[in-house]
Amino acid sequence: MLIIRAFFSFIIVSGTCWRCMCYSRIQELGSPRQKLDGLRHVRVFVPVAVKEGDNAVLMCFFDLNGDSLYSVKWYKGGREMYRYMPREVPSVKVFPITGLSDLFIEKTKSNGTHLFLKKVTINLSGRYSCEVSADAPSFRTALVSGDMNIVVVPSAFPEIKGMKARYKLGDTLEVQCVSKDSRPAANLTWSLNGRVLDSEYVKQANIKRDSEKGLETAVSTLTLSLHHHHFVGGRIKAKCTASIHNIYWQTTENSAGEEKPKDAEPSTSISKDALQPSNVPKEGQKKDDSANSRGHCCYCASHIFERLKASYVRVPFSLQLVCLYILRYNIIS
């Protein structure tokens, strides 16, 4: 079969090119090539954020595709700190890094794909790189990196400041939320009665840095003109949420009541002269006889009763009964 195909190629192509054509055809049919890609698909998984004092696990995965693994190395900021070589004894080696005395690698839990860090501190934030090297036949090397942040979470809940006990319609609600001593500064969001507020009502968080502690404090201000729909059941509930990456989330909620305007109340004060009829004897004048006194008493009770009604004063029922009783039976006091 090979001789026949070469013969036809010689007839079609003249000159020296027929040799190249015949050779290429023979290679394709007689000895097919074996494709060995070797080391590829190196990928690293570095946690984005880890709470200070917790353990951290860094992972590095790869496909050898026919190659043999020569070594896996981990770097912190370009300096080697860990090496795994399966053909050596011991296979795991740890290298100290100057200035990072708080870097502790658990050898028994680390291998060619996993790197176990114990009780990380804030100094260990930064870039970590995994370098994978293959042995024969490809001798390939690949380096992949990822960043890790060590987080110091606040020791207390966020605090809402400046909230009054009561607000009226049209008042301005202006309160602050403070989340102290963290790194990085907490992200602060506001909600009112369970609904997240738009950014137009929130002043962008102000970050205060403590150079001695190396920690940060976040401050956010909410300013909102209150309307009827802001009061649910006669109250408003303002909530502040502080969060850092996916490892810290705390909320604080304060509430205030609605102060309703007082209704206009009629004056309840009645002058002394208004309660005294005009024909009642004044001081120093001679009093009338008993008949006149009876008439004056009845007139007085009637006059007081009418004056109270005219003044829109709510007359107690007991007083009404007394006046009516006096008028009915002409009782002399």
Rank of each mutant, 00 (worst) to 15 (best):
2 L>P: 07
141 T>V: 10
143 L>N: 15
36 L>A: 00
157 F>H: 13
276 Q>T: 15
180 K>I: 09
263 D>S: 12
197 L>H: 03
126 G>E: 09
156 A>I: 14
235 R>W: 11
150 I>L: 08
49 A>K: 01
231 F>L: 13
247 I>R: 07
193 N>Q: 06
248 Y>P: 09
42 V>T: 03
81 M>V: 00
3 I>H: 10
158 P>D: 11
114 H>D: 13
286 K>D: 11
148 M>N: 04
297 C>Q: 07
66 G>Q: 01
233 G>Q: 07
252 T>V: 11
52 E>T: 07
117 L>W: 02
241 T>F: 00
42 V>K: 00
138 S>V: 05
207 I>S: 03
225 S>I: 15
159 E>L: 12
300 C>E: 08
110 S>P: 03
101 S>N: 10
127 R>K: 13
24 S>Y: 08
100 L>V: 10
55 N>I: 11
305 F>G: 03
6 A>I: 01
201 Y>D: 08
155 S>R: 09
215 L>H: 05
317 F>V: 12
59 M>L: 12
309 K>A: 08
273 D>S: 13
204 Q>D: 04
70 Y>I: 02
330 N>G: 13
330 N>R: 15
277 P>A: 03
196 V>T: 14
327 L>V: 12
33 R>Q: 08
71 S>E: 03
61 F>L: 12
288 D>P: 05
22 C>W: 01
269 S>F: 14
